[in-house]
Amino acid sequence: MDIFVYGTLTEPDRVAEVLDSYVYVGPATLFGLHLVEGRYPTLAPGGETGGRLLRTEEMDALDEYERVGEGLYRRVTVPLDAPDGHPDEAAVYVGDPDRLDADATWPDEGGDGSDGERNGGGSGFTDRVDRYLEREAVGVRLAP
């Protein structure tokens, strides 16, 4: 599977600590989400983020590293714009900004974030991310 990485997993030494088998496919850009800093880097609506496309079959190891089971990050799938021979989709890890102390707001269902809650906490974050990805043109483009 191809994964867009934008933080510590762009560093080969760190990836080698997490995965036994992987390859960097090349530089890539994620459109529709931008990088925000917190305890760990995460993503927020709008803009774009530069990173790398990583290929591995060891998704369980990545999920553990990103603490998906604990709700710190969640793995989502977005369209991948790449030459023939590449998958049509790439995974992206999005961290819960409340749990990461990151300045990010995921819009409510109406898209204006005006419901007075920052992210809705818990499952609210998951729902807001899903709704944003359904509405917006979020995707990864592999650099030529």
Rank of each mutant, 00 (worst) to 15 (best):
V78L: 06
G69V: 02
D127A: 13
P41V: 11
G46T: 03
R74I: 05
L142K: 08
M1A: 15
D84T: 12
R52Y: 06
D84P: 09
E109L: 14
D130C: 05
R135C: 01
R99I: 06
D103M: 05
T126I: 12
V92K: 13
H86W: 13
M59C: 03
T29M: 06
R128E: 04
R14M: 13
Y22R: 07
E66M: 11
D98V: 11
G50N: 09
E17A: 14
S114L: 15
T10G: 01
P12L: 01
A104R: 01
Y73G: 03
G116V: 12
L142W: 10
R74K: 09
A91L: 08
R135G: 03
R118F: 07
R67K: 12
D2N: 12
S114Q: 14
N119V: 04
G111L: 04
A61D: 13
V78Q: 04
T56Y: 07
V68F: 04
G95I: 05
G111H: 05
T10C: 11
R141Y: 02
A137G: 06
A61R: 15
V94G: 06
D13E: 15
L9W: 02
E136W: 00
T77I: 10
D130N: 14
T126V: 15
G47Y: 04
E117I: 11
V25T: 14
S114T: 14
V5F: 06
G120D: 13
L19G: 06
L72M: 15
D81K: 11
E70F: 12
L62I: 11
